[in-house]
Amino acid sequence: MISYRELRTLSLDFRRISSNLLNSDDDNADVNMIRFKKFIDETPFISQLLHNAMDGVDYDFKKCFLIEDSGWHSIEIPADEKLHIKAQYDYMTFIVESDKCSVTGQAMRFPHSSNKWADIIQSFISNAFKPLIDYINDAISKEIILLEEEQKQTPSMVQNIGSVYGSAVQGTTITSTNVTNVNDNEKLLEMLGQAINALASIDAPEDIKADLQDDIEVVSEQIASPTPKKSRLNKALAGIKKFAAEFGMKVAVSTAVGTVTGFDWYKLIQAIETFVDKIK
């Protein structure tokens, strides 16, 4: 029987290899399909699952995948799930084992709306084989849940070992406390300057931006001061944190025209927190 640990690893491996297949383009679709097929055939848990579903089922996959006509190919999904599983498995075997067939060649024969190779191939693989992927994925998840429930019933010996290990690790991190130096403060002041610049391009209400600017200025003053006040810093820090939680999402989106970037408010908050911690 497969162990809980092995099953979790299998789940991750299967999802990775399925995603690779679903994300295929013209260059790698055939390789990805061969790897996927090999994986499900050679992993005992999955091949057993498929055998259980398909053994004794007599069904021609060309009734589900209408690929014989000279016109467009099409898919007619049978109501019985077992027939559908078998049809998908056999169609995949047909593509992988045939010398004349490629994934791209098949994809082109199904109606498509995009003119990009990757889109045509990905929508074909998703339409034709995603139900098989979902079937296997769900079966693995269900088995994990079953094993978890069995484990809950055994006493928590393992947990004790876990927590001892945890505190040992914590012990080592505590010893490495940071030491203040002038350099750090200069860097922080520089970041605060950048924050004020970044403010101008943020699309947030003006009064909120004004409050944030006040907070940043308070922090700058305190850092430059020979006797920084912890209470004033904490108050300003709370304001900056509130802003970051609400407006600080930096989005990096690639578009046809360019990319989107922003200022890292979280790095700034961390740096201020480190400074506040060092004040006695």
């Binding site: 679903l22 391009s201 943020i202 360019g258």
Partner: peptide
């Protein structure tokens, strides 16, 4: 041509932002 745009998304009260799965 490459141009940089910058904008922000306001998260929920705990700073979480919504994403969408391209598969499901």
């Amino acid at each position: 041509m490459s141009v940089e745009f910058s904008f922000t998304i306001q998260g929920d009260s705990e700073g979480y932002v919504t994403f969408l799965c391209p598969f499901c």
